[in-house]
């Protein structure tokens, strides 16, 4: 009969543990919890009425609407791209595969401001395609298409990076089994591939969406800050803040903070429930 070795905590060890825990908690409070609370406190500083006034102004409404619109385009596009890219990366061997992997990661390694500037350089009035686009009456920069493009670029890696390691680990035997059993391509995808990656996909989409709605840098460059037309929620927050409209700024900011909290809650629930079906690392490892 052997007993499991009892874990004895000496005084110094207990003390060390306590101090470390305390330090971690204190750090979290000062750097995360306090700012988050501050957002809501500031937003409601002049009462609920002022808060709801602030978020129901036309500018706020159009910013919310635009943010949702941009995300509603960018996220599905990156969902499709992410699945396609992950499929290619996980199922095939080809020349330049590692290069493709690097390209998928590119948006993580490039500063968002640069990402925005690249689009200005390409599609802006002085840019490569600018004059041609102008001649045909298409405006991309300082307009909604620019916002969508910049957001798509920034959020491109989220879905793919989440799926690649999972699909590589799962291998393609189940798909081969499905084919031999008589499934056609679509049946194989919808009955075998997709169910196997569904939680990781949801996870990736969630992160992608949070980023798409919260992106500031790249969007700021291509937006042109035309109130009511090309300002998303983060840009609206900045503009209000610069105009000393603190309640307004924090009220709109609280919407983003709420989005973050909801995302965090769903993400945690997913990790807790389907942890083994979700790639262990956060995308991009930034």
């Amino acid at each position: 009969m052997s007993r499991p070795p009892s874990r004895s905590f000496g005084w110094p060890r207990l003390l060390g543990r306590g101090l470390l825990t305390l330090a971690a908690v204190a750090f979290l409070i000062v750097f995360l919890l306090l700012p988050l609370t501050a957002v809501f406190v500031e937003a409601f500083r002049q009462g609920a009425g002022a808060f709801f006034d602030a978020i129901s102004q036309d500018e706020a409404r159009s910013a919310i609407w635009l943010t949702v619109l941009v995300a509603a385009i960018a996220v599905p596009v990156n969902l499709v791209f992410g699945i396609a890219a992950a499929w290619v990366m996980a199922r095939f061997e080809f020349r330049g595969k590692s290069l493709l992997g690097a390209f998928i990661d590119l948006p993580f390694s490039v500063s968002p401001v640069i990402s925005g500037l690249v689009y200005v350089l390409l599609f802006g009035a002085q840019g490569w395609f600018g004059p041609w686009l102008e001649a045909h009456g298409v405006s991309i920069i300082f307009a909604v298409p620019g916002l969508v493009l910049a957001t798509m670029f920034i959020t491109l890696p989220f879905v793919a990076r989440e799926l690649i390691p999972l699909m590589q680990a799962q291998g393609n035997e189940e798909e081969e089994a499905a084919r031999v059993l008589g499934a056609n391509g679509w049946q194989m995808f919808f009955r075998v591939t997709l169910p196997n990656i569904r939680w990781a996909l949801l996870y990736g989409v969630l992160l992608c969406n949070a980023r798409a709605m919260g992106e500031f840098g790249a969007v700021s460059v291509v937006s042109g800050h035309i109130r009511g037309l090309t300002t998303t929620i983060p840009l609206e927050v900045e503009m209000r803040y610069n105009e000393y409209d603190y309640v307004g700024a924090f009220a709109v900011a609280s919407l983003l903070a709420l989005l973050a909290l909801v995302t965090l809650a769903i993400k945690t629930a997913l990790e807790w429930r389907y942890g083994d079906e979700i790639a262990s690392h956060a995308p991009g490892g930034r």
Binding site: E173, E174, E176, A177, A178, V180, V192, P195, N196
Partner: peptide, 13 residues
């Protein structure tokens, strides 16, 4: 044909 894989390849879901 019926194919049986070494690692079963059952549909896990």
């Amino acid at each position: 044909v019926g194919l049986v894989f070494q690692h079963y390849a059952l549909f896990r879901h």
